Amino acid sequence: MGIQNRKILASILFVLISFVCNAQVDGTPPPPIPPPPPGLPIDGGIAFLVAIGLFYGIKKKIK
């Protein structure tokens, strides 16, 4: 193998290695997810609890 062939092979390997190094994934982690909004929404669960409370109160009042 001549000097010319070694130079060509070395050049090709250098170019290929530089492509591989450039294609590596960035080491930075993804940004953190934002925190959930404060407080909870008032749903139909409150109406259900009020209805049960009224039923219980009426039942106790009758007895």
Rank of each mutant, 00 (worst) to 15 (best):
M1R: 06
M1W: 04
G2W: 00
I3V: 11
R6Y: 13
R6E: 15
I8D: 11
I8G: 05
L9N: 11
L9Q: 14
L9F: 13
A10E: 15
A10M: 08
S11G: 12
S11T: 12
L13G: 12
L13F: 11
L16V: 11
L16D: 07
L16F: 06
I17K: 12
F19E: 11
F19P: 08
F19Y: 08
F19D: 07
C21I: 11
A23K: 06
A23R: 02
Q24L: 15
Q24P: 04
V25N: 14
V25T: 14
D26K: 03
D26C: 07
D26R: 03
G27L: 09
G27R: 04
P29D: 08
P30A: 05
P30K: 02
P30Y: 01
P31T: 09
P31G: 06
P32F: 07
P32W: 07
P34H: 02
P35C: 05
P35L: 08
P36W: 03
P37D: 05
P38E: 05
P38H: 07
P38L: 07
G39E: 04
G39H: 01
L40Q: 08
L40R: 11
L40Y: 09
L40P: 00
L40D: 10
P41H: 00
P41E: 03
P41L: 02
P41V: 04
P41S: 01
D43Y: 00
D43N: 10
G44T: 00
G45N: 15
G45Y: 05
I46S: 06
I46W: 00
A47M: 08
A47N: 03
A47I: 04
F48D: 08
F48A: 12
F48Y: 01
F48C: 04
L49K: 10
V50L: 12
A51V: 01
A51C: 03
A51Y: 01
A51R: 02
A51Q: 01
I52E: 10
I52K: 06
I52V: 15
G53P: 00
L54P: 00
L54R: 04
F55L: 15
Y56F: 14
G57A: 09
G57D: 00
G57H: 01
G57L: 11
G57R: 07
I58H: 05
I58Q: 06
K59T: 14
K59A: 15
K59D: 13
K59M: 11
K61A: 15
I62L: 13
I62D: 02
I62A: 13
I62W: 13
K63D: 05
K63N: 12
